[in-house]
Amino acid sequence: MIETEPLVAAAGLVKHFPVRRGLFGRVSGLVRAVDGVDVRIAAGETLGVVGESGCGKSTLGRMVLRLIEPTAGSIVFDGQDIGTLGAGALRAQRRAMQIIFQDPYSSLNPRMTVGQTLAEPLRLHGLHRGREGERVTELLHTVGLAPEHALRYPHEFSGGQRQRIGIARALAVEPKLIVCDEAVSALDVSVQAQVVNLLQDLQRRFGLAYIFIAHDLAVVKHIATRVAVMYLGRIVETADKEALFANPRHPYTQALLAAIPRPEPSARRERPVLGGDVPSPLNPPPGCHFHTRCPHAQPVCSQTAPLLEGTGDGHFAACHFWREIQSHAATEQPIAFAPARRRLERLQSAFVASDPVPTP
């Protein structure tokens, strides 16, 4: 098979936010939000990025778009090093890179109608001149909304409809990559399924690539092609979706997967123990950042940071002892409590039952 150049190739991405204190704003520390991350995404692929809150997922996604300037590292998008682009050239390049935000209400201007919101990026990039109205109608139909919705304001829509408007706005400039930053986490379960199915349908139609950032592993399993697991600013494991869910190698990934509620009442599993709290990104532990909570930690873990290594099958893990502890991936967890179990059952059935582009 001939390998093609990836759509996105980011190497050594670092983002440190200075913490300033005192009257003169002196720098007293650095928040290490992203601490040396490599990302490669092919055209038409979905990279799911998962991890606990504060692990750097959103910062990584926004750095790829250069909405946040990296402290170090390079970002090549569609063969162009966007880190070297000036403001004008970057603005033109951003036509191919869009983002869908978590909160579908705060991301829309409440003083603009939906039609004005969708026409704005067309004017900014000089697209569809003289036929903006036709393009707005086309976009609304594409995301399952009616043409008359163009005359309404954001507060007149439900959360799911507002997120569809955000998706339509991202599609307006015909991008190649969309960063979905917790794009469904604020929605009800059944609406999540509808929006995820819509995103998949749009990907098939337009060849889009996604960076899908989420907490919900059930959603990531449904939409992602590959998954990257982040912990305290670093990627600790990455693999194809099937391989990662079936055979996780890093103990942190094993713990995340073991915490997923399971609908089968008879499925009893022993959850891997995670001791202690999440360390502060202001002062992350030396060596492997996860060693303070890892049930398999050895002295070398606190001294040397493990490399993200693979075995030639596209599965990579940053753990000194993943081979020795791999058998722990199959351990069982206790029955999930009833509300979580019911939520997972609704989510799984909704993915199957929902239409990719439901009628409004």
Rank of each mutant, 00 (worst) to 15 (best):
9 A>W: 03
25 G>W: 03
27 V>T: 15
42 A>Q: 15
43 A>G: 14
47 L>C: 11
48 G>D: 09
51 G>C: 03
62 R>T: 03
64 V>M: 13
64 V>E: 01
68 I>H: 11
70 P>A: 07
78 D>P: 08
79 G>F: 03
80 Q>H: 07
80 Q>N: 03
86 G>D: 11
88 G>K: 14
89 A>I: 02
92 A>S: 15
104 P>K: 07
110 P>C: 08
116 Q>F: 02
145 L>H: 11
149 H>S: 12
150 A>H: 04
150 A>S: 11
162 R>N: 09
167 I>Q: 06
172 A>N: 13
175 P>F: 12
188 D>K: 09
194 Q>V: 02
202 L>Q: 13
202 L>F: 03
207 G>N: 08
209 A>T: 03
212 F>D: 00
216 D>G: 10
220 V>Y: 06
226 R>E: 10
229 V>F: 01
231 Y>T: 14
240 D>L: 14
240 D>V: 04
245 F>H: 12
250 H>I: 01
255 A>L: 04
257 L>G: 05
269 R>E: 12
276 G>M: 11
277 D>T: 13
291 H>R: 07
300 V>H: 03
314 G>I: 07
315 H>Q: 07
321 F>M: 06
329 A>T: 08
332 E>K: 05
334 P>G: 05
335 I>L: 13
339 P>F: 13
349 S>I: 10
350 A>Q: 12
351 F>E: 00
354 S>Q: 12
357 V>T: 14
